[in-house]
Nucleic acid binder design. Structure first.
Lengths: 333, 333
DNA sequence: TTGAAAGCGCTAACAT
DNA sequence: ATGTTAGCGCTTTCAA
């Protein structure tokens, strides 16, 4: 029968049906040792029959913890997040924690609201996979539950740990790769001034200078108008481009196509993030890979340490790696 | 000072600081009318000072509702889900509901666990953006909170509403589009036997027969070995392919490339889902677009109706549309 | 306008 | 092995 979601059975209902006290039901259902087999069976039967499930709200309230980790995402659509979440889920699962996701919709206010929701639910810790969260919001959250930020916040917040990849090292990897392919004029093209992009830019500039060459940096407002800045570069003899991320790199592939420059024969392009579509576009994109699942696992570890009493801040930096595909090749003649 | 997350202030702490009873704090903080301005100010000040935030667990427990909607996702990495979630969030926000996400990790067991978590938290409704959820799990969930499935479950569950796009109509759109371009030998290539893919296949076959032609259907086990089934088709004069989804379509573009068939000059390809990378791959993919945000909004509407007392089941079907890009063109000679 | 008290469903300490 | 009881933090009557 299509029965309306009637009043949910409580532990008392189960107790009544099984003919025992509610504490015994609680003990039995949670597998406590000191319950006789016969009553345990009776209680399980009653619970099944009623379709009883324990109320997490009540349990959380009395226990003061929920065995839930909250994950705050800036942007669900960003496949980068997905792999980070996978790492979080894996690590959380190993220690018996569930994972609840909240979506900030690329909006600072929404992120704050969602963070509040998670914290209000008494999750036992929050991981913000976002560098956008408002400082004040982080501070407020961190006063009631451990908080870890994955990514590079504009400014660190005392009491909030962070995990990030080494953007400078990643950019340097790209430079090295291109040098090995014989390129001498290598440019960096960015579409952002946020900390991650800037870290990559600085890493690029440093690596290029170290090799005794001159950096060429282009920062465009929008991914749509990079052609304007890039075309002169290409005419002036640049044979390789490093993008601040894969989306920018894809746009660069389009530029190259429009300008009649075959990739990788005449122009090499390196992306950053090694996102899903790096392997989908043609030519397949050489890209810097962040250890995404590892970022997630590390965040969980930091959270657990906090819960275990650590009070000093930690800022972990993980090393990226280069994934070579077909968008880079030897310098053309 | 980097202060450890000490005991969270409760309504009692606020009451003590403000010098009033806890009931008054509750009333004031929720903006109830009958509280004098002066005390209201005093209470707000005390709350701010302590950094007080109401405990959603306690509130939910006493009110019997949480003003939260739970969304169960099969696969975070699937960009299709993202847009559906956007629609859900929009509609939920409009009626004052928050949205909590749980991730099933493409695993039936995990989906069940996550569904249980959401239901255990007493969310006021669950939307499963997934056709993978176990029947029994849906039944159990539906007994304690309204449940809507977005997508095509293998079998419907009494008491559970569904929202889906019209797969057959979508496939028919693709056929019509190709017919208009002059194609006469149109094949359908699928990598799945699940209801969505099958619905599309049937829609395709019907539309093709209606046009007085013979269907050519290939169902591959895996997206990686479609070449085997597709190559003979192409040799036998087929000039257009309809894929069961965009991923399959991208694989078909690769096939075509390997076989030296330029798209769209010699071969046209239509995808399904109009996912993010439909616009990223080269050539850009013509694809059938599901009204994703609308699917989400509709699900919320159904949920609210259930909460409002509706007990009859609803199964909504929304119409897809075709987005023409560069992977389809007039039949070559 | 304010306060006292009951109770949401559960766990946990203490009795028996 | 089982039952009793006291809360967890909050909302919500009801009384003052």
């Amino acid at each position: 029968m299509p029965q309306a979601p009637s009043r949910r059975p409580t532990i008392l209902d189960v107790a009544r049906v099984a003919g025992v006290s509610k504490s015994l039901v609680s003990l039995a259902l949670r597998g406590d040792a000191g319950v006789s087999e016969s009553t345990r069976a009776r209680i399980s039967a009653a619970a099944d029959q009623l379709g009883y499930r324990s109320n997490a709200l009540a349990r959380g309230l009395v226990q003061g913890r929920t065995m839930l980790l909250g994950v705050l995402l800036t942007d669900l659509a960003n496949p980068y997040h997905t792999d980070v979440v996978a790492g979080i889920e894996e690590a959380a699962g190993e220690v018996g924690f569930g994972v609840l996701l909240a979506h900030g919709r690329r909006d600072a206010k929404q992120l704050t609201t969602q963070l509040d929701t998670l914290v209000g639910l008494n999750v036992d810790g929050v991981i913000a996979v976002s560098s956008w969260v408002d400082r004040a919001a982080l501070q407020a959250a961190m006063r009631r539950t451990p908080v870890v930020v994955i990514g590079r916040p504009e400014e660190t917040v005392e009491g909030v740990d962070t995990v990030a990849n080494d953007d400078a090292a990643g950019a340097a990897l790209a430079v090295t790769h291109l040098l090995e392919l014989g390129h001498r004029e290598i440019a960096f093209v960015s579409t952002s001034r946020r900390p991650a992009a800037e870290g990559r830019r600085r890493g690029y500039e440093l690596a290029v200078r170290r090799a005794g060459m001159t950096p060429h940096t282009v920062v465009a407002e929008d991914v749509d108008d990079i052609t304007v800045g890039v075309a002169p570069l290409l005419r002036s003899g640049v044979t390789a481009l490093i993008a601040n991320n894969d989306l920018t790199a894809v746009a660069l592939l389009d530029c190259a196509h429009d300008l009649g420059l075959p990739v990788p024969e005449r122009l090499s392009v390196v992306g950053y993030d090694n996102s899903t579509f790096a392997a989908l576009v043609r030519p397949r994109l050489t890209s810097i890979d962040q250890p995404r699942p590892e970022l997630g696992r590390t965040a969980v570890r930091l959270l657990l340490q906090r819960a275990g009493g650590r009070t000093t801040d930690r800022h972990e930096v993980l090393q990226p790696s280069l994934v070579a595909r077909n968008s880079t090749g030897p310098r053309g003649l």
